[in-house]
């Protein structure tokens, strides 16, 4: 009698455990299937880009070869010609200057804006915060027409400094919005403790808020970097001489002549242009995750 009473629940427990394990196995198999599917789907274009960049012009043009493999041997000719005989390095330098300036301006403006809007409650602060976000919703394809007039009137048409002026219209609203959220998640007592410790508002921002909200600031920096590195519409509209051009537009305009596509060089250019974001993402993502877990614990 007592043996039976013990045996029944034991069998039941094994049954439940086995079904849980089976469930978990199926969930894992399904996850892996879709993850691999997506990985293949998204890695195919970069793979195609690398393979094409490492082929000779002759092999690219030869219709009979398999485009997915390098049949006639690796060559770095595409890169050599790109760097030596085109304006690619000028585009690259211009893009770096524009991006560094835009990220710097964006961070200064949006950290200060987010701190005042998120922390120093004043009349109209919440309406202003919403208003800033709304400006982000206006697409750049609409904004470039009025901005053209503004850029022209300040004499920055066909100058990459004009880009330093106009990109923040895309980056500042969204970065401010991200950081308002981060600043608001910091406990109120932390600024009160700082106030009592004798900090001014500026010291509170630089010594407490910026270090504590670093994950948010880095997320915002990544966003500002991506926007200004990859912007296309504004340089297309405002820049027209090669010495002022940036990577996105410059590569396309200089390597596509009429209906002649220099595929090898286009791919080599795209590869080099994609390298800095990749490196920066890889480096900052680690930092970002480390910062995220550190900030998650309430002081």
């Amino acid at each position: 009698m007592s043996t039976a009473a013990i045996a029944v629940p034991t069998t039941k427990r094994i049954g439940v455990g086995a079904s849980l394990r089976r469930n978990r196995r199926w969930a894992l198999i399904t996850s892996y299937f879709f993850l691999i599917l997506f990985a293949i789907f998204f890695l195919m274009p970069p793979y195609y880009m690398i393979v094409t960049a490492l082929k000779s012009d002759a092999e690219v043009a030869h219709m009979a070869t398999n485009p997915w493999i390098i049949a006639n041997g690796l060559t770095l000719d595409q890169f050599k010609i790109l760097f030596m005989q085109t304006d690619f390095l000028i585009f690259f330098k211009n893009t770096v200057i524009v991006t560094v300036c835009v990220v710097a301006i964006t961070m200064v403006v949006s950290v200060l804006a987010a701190f005042s809007l998120g922390r120093m409650k004043f009349w109209g602060s919440s309406i202003l915060a919403t208003g800033i976000f709304l400006t982000y919703l206006v697409p750049d394809t609409l904004l470039f027409i009025p901005l053209f007039q503004i850029v022209k009137s300040v004499g920055l048409l066909n100058s990459y400094w004009g880009m330093v002026l106009v990109y923040p219209t895309l980056t500042v609203p969204f970065c401010t919005w991200i950081m308002i959220g981060y600043f608001q998640s910091i406990p109120k007592e932390l600024d009160e403790a700082a106030l009592i410790d004798g900090a001014s508002h500026m010291q509170m921002l630089t010594k407490i808020f910026i270090p504590v909200a670093l994950p948010g600031i880095i997320a915002a920096m990544i966003f500002a970097f991506t926007v200004s590195w990859a912007a296309f519409v504004y340089p297309m509209a405002f820049l027209y001489s090669a010495d002022q051009q940036v990577l996105t537009v410059g590569t396309v305009t200089s390597l596509i002549r009429g209906d002649v596509y220099k595929w090898g060089m286009l791919m080599a250019g795209a590869l080099v242009a994609a390298a800095p974001p990749l490196v920066i993402y890889a480096f900052l993502m680690d930092y970002y995750i480390a910062g995220l877990t550190a900030g998650a614990t309430k002081g």
Partner: peptide, 20 residues
């Protein structure tokens, strides 16, 4: 007077230590 000029120190319920 602002808090910093009152020469007081405060201990909060959730400690309010600077996490970094």
């Amino acid at each position: 007077l602002p808090p910093k000029d009152r020469d007081i120190a405060m201990v909060f319920q959730n400690y309010a230590l600077y996490p970094h």
